[in-house]
């Protein structure tokens, strides 16, 4: 039990540091609202190393903490919608078994942005914002692939060091 708590704590801390780095140095693609989402490396990596409910808890807690520290209620609700939807979709894609970590991460990226734009359209009561949909899902695929590649490397490195065995 204490091992689980420590493990979850490490992952949340890492995710928060990644989020903080992105607040300091935004990896912008020149499109408003589009960012790399480095913290998702933790979520994708976690999905392949931890129990699903642990990853879900890590993802939600990371969003809540970062939202309270750097955001406001509005940005928090966008982030939560994106975080929950992307987690659910990534979990399903992984369960299907036929997608590699790249596909799982790309799906997560797409649905993360999709969740955010739907909530944004509801909050702003402006369906015109949905015109942004094509740009956002392309951005989701691109960032998702990048995050997937990095997570793949992270998992392989951790496995070489037998870290994952220690986690079990």
């Amino acid at each position: 039990m204490s091992k689980r708590v420590a493990r979850i704590g490490i992952f949340i801390a890492l995710a928060m540091i990644f989020s903080y780095i992105e607040v300091l140095i935004p990896f912008s693609f020149g499109i408003p609202g589009v960012k790399l989402g480095v913290a998702n490396i933790v979520v994708v990596t976690g999905l392949y190393m931890l129990k699903p409910q642990e990853v879900f808890f890590i993802s939600i807690l990371r969003i809540l903490l970062i939202g309270l520290l750097f955001g406001n209620v509005m940005t928090l609700s966008y982030s939560l919608a994106g975080g929950i939807l992307s987690f659910v979709v990534m979990y399903i894609f992984k369960k299907l078994g036929s997608f590699s970590i790249i596909g799982v991460s790309a799906a997560g990226g797409v649905f993360h942005n999709l969740g955010q734009i739907i909530v944004a359209a509801f909050i702003l009561k402006n369906e015109k914002i949905l015109y942004y949909f094509p740009v956002l899902i392309i951005a989701g695929v691109v960032t998702g692939i990048l995050i997937g590649f990095v997570s793949d490397k992270v998992i392989k490195t951790l496995k070489i060091q037998d870290f994952s065995e220690n986690l079990k």
Partner: peptide, 12 residues
């Protein structure tokens, strides 16, 4: 990246 991943990305 496998074929399924590629198909998903193309569809999106």
């Amino acid at each position: 990246m496998n074929k399924r991943d590629f198909a998903f990305i193309v569809i999106i």
